[in-house]
Design a protein around this nucleic acid. Structure first.
Length: 544
DNA sequence: ATAGGGTTAG
């Protein structure tokens, strides 16, 4: 087709409509009109129609198939659109059939075909086949192909194969490197990822945020923050939105208050618009660090708030003990905010975690499924069991566990056992504890809870039996610790810790607060502290 | 003439 012809097409009002089309409904109308005036049979226009249905997020692959079937001689562009369309569906391997059809019709694949084809693979076996095709067609030095292969092999947990592709390739750009970093992170191999990251000669904002967010998704929060601190001192590294988002979530997770505040200041000084994602991350960060007032200020200032923003704020209020305010905010959300989702209900059920609010919890759980049509998942049952157990309503908690449609997990039994411990339901607690240890035999915290229960009733023999069991199974306990950051200095505390320079004053103050707090925790908690694993059991028996 | 890869808040 000549150049003037295409110019003619691009000036058509219908085509301009197609370019701004944003829904399938709209597209179907345009398609009908184009068919009526006889334009739909032109290759270029049909291709444009097809690309929208197949590739656009709002597209429809079945409709795309219909459009495709009406094209008498599909071009490579059309085949590529179809392969890509299918690769986004739940049946990506249909894309491979399209490729087979394409080969039968003697249409030559081009450079764009293979990255798309790699993405249409649903398993490592078909990816290997496609990889073979790629080599045969001489596209194995194309960076787009390489990065897609690395990405896909990583997705199928085949890091060896991903690395082979990486190594065999003589020219690699920053995207190929980043794919490998992301691949290792996705497979939990953060050290390998870091090695690759450090070996990169060229890093950009995407590769930096890939490494940092890889740390975060593997719960290596301190490593994420440490790397960020290095990066922010590099003049050539741009602190991108996604990098700052990842670091903020790491700061929220470990309570790195000073670092998070630094980011907040940086956002303000550099005119970042933190209307949605960044604002929500800030609310989460301040909420988890206990600065609930600052979190609320940011929340009130934000003009764009979505369901996540609201849920995060409600959750922040809940974990800071502002249960009533959280419930009020939820009411406000129901009246003027976005429609709550499953996450919102986890937050609001967490806000009911106070014995006087147990009935409110029941009401909200019912409202969630009946009014909003959200089926409860295990997290909702977990919250509900937790709040019933804390309120000492063990019978209701038991009924809920027995009637819920899924198997209770460790966290849920943990809440139940915790309730037994608080309210002195020894027999029930023993049952739950044994169940819990069976369910999660490697989880040290489960043994500690049960041991605490035995300790409350003075069955030291049982405590020691548990301890022996742990020794045999080589279960290592990590002592619980807390910290507070004052002026950039972190003060860390563990149970019975006297290493702090102001330890004497701290203990005196604690003593003033609550005498029982100290004496009651001794026999039960102290023995599990790894710093005291030499503690004589006789000392324990004497109740010292 | 039309199109493709790596990061992204609960």
């Amino acid at each position: 087709m000549s150049r003037t012809f295409s110019k003619f097409f691009s000036n058509l009002p219908f085509l301009r409509l197609l370019q701004t089309c944003c829904s399938m409904n709209e597209l179907k109308q345009i398609h009908a009109q184009l068919t009526t005036v006889g334009l739909a049979r032109f290759t270029y226009i049909a291709s444009k129609l097809l690309a929208f249905c197949a590739v656009d997020e709002t597209g429809d692959i079945d409709y795309a198939q219909t459009v495709f079937n009406q094209i008498s001689i599909p071009t490579i562009f059309d085949f590529n659109s179809m392969i890509m369309g299918f690769s986004k569906t739940s049946k990506p391997e249909m894309g491979l059939s399209v490729f087979a059809q394409m080969r039968r019709e003697n249409v030559e694949p081009n450079a764009r075909t293979f990255p798309i084809l790699a993405r249409a693979c649903a398993c490592v076996a078909s990816l290997c086949q496609v990889h073979g095709q790629i080599k045969k067609n001489g596209h194995d030095s194309d960076v787009y192909v390489i990065s897609s292969l690395i990405y896909m092999y990583s997705k199928f947990d085949a890091m060896d194969l991903a690395f082979d592709v990486f190594e065999e390739c003589s020219y690699k750009n920053v995207v190929c490197w980043t794919s490998l970093v992301t691949g290792y992170c996705g497979n939990g191999l953060v050290d390998e990822a870091r090695e690759v990251f450090d070996a990169m000669s060229e890093k950009n904002d995407v590769s930096c945020s890939a490494m940092v967010s890889g740390y975060v998704s593997n719960e290596c929060f301190n490593e994420a923050i440490e790397l960020f601190c290095k990066l922010k001192n590099c003049a050539n590294v741009k602190l991108s939105r996604s990098l700052l988002l990842s670091v903020l979530s790491a700061c929220a997770a470990v309570g790195a208050f000073e670092e998070g505040k630094w980011i907040h200041t940086y956002l303000d000084n550099n005119c970042f618009d933190y209307e949605l994602e960044l604002g929500t991350a800030l609310i989460d960060f301040y909420g988890k660090c206990g600065s609930i007032k600052t979190a609320e200020e940011i929340f009130r200032k934000m003009t764009r708030k979505d369901v996540t923003t609201w849920s995060t704020m409600i959750f922040g209020l809940a974990i800071n003990g502002n249960n009533e305010v959280a419930l009020e905010l939820f009411e406000e959300m129901e009246q003027t905010g976005p429609k709550p989702n499953a996450v919102t209900f986890v937050a609001i059920l967490a806000a009911c975690n106070h014995e006087i609010l147990a009935n409110e919890g029941w009401r909200l759980l019912g409202r969630m499924s009946k009014f909003y049509g959200i089926s409860p998942v295990i997290e909702h049952y977990g919250c509900m069991v937790d709040l019933l157990a804390r309120a000492g309503r063990m019978k209701e908690a038991e009924i809920l566990i027995n009637t819920m449609p899924m198997k209770p997990d460790g966290a849920l039994w943990g809440s139940f056992l915790n309730g037994c411990l608080i309210h002195g339901h020894i027999e029930l607690g023993k049952k739950a504890g044994k169940h819990l240890i069976q369910l999660e035999p490697e989880h040290s915290g489960r043994y500690v809870l049960l041991a605490n229960l035995y300790a409350t009733m003075g069955s030291w023999e049982s405590v020691m039996r548990l301890r022996k069991m742990m020794r045999e199974k080589k279960i290592v306990t990590v002592p619980a610790w807390s910290f507070i950051e004052i002026g950039g200095i972190v003060h860390k505390f563990i149970v019975d810790d006297k290493s702090h320079s102001q330890s004497r004053d701290i203990y005196n103050l604690l003593y003033l607060f609550n005498v029982d707090l100290m004496s009651s925790s001794r026999g039960s908690v102290m023995i599990w502290d790894s710093h005291h694993n030499q503690t004589d059991e006789a000392e324990l028996l004497s109740g010292n």
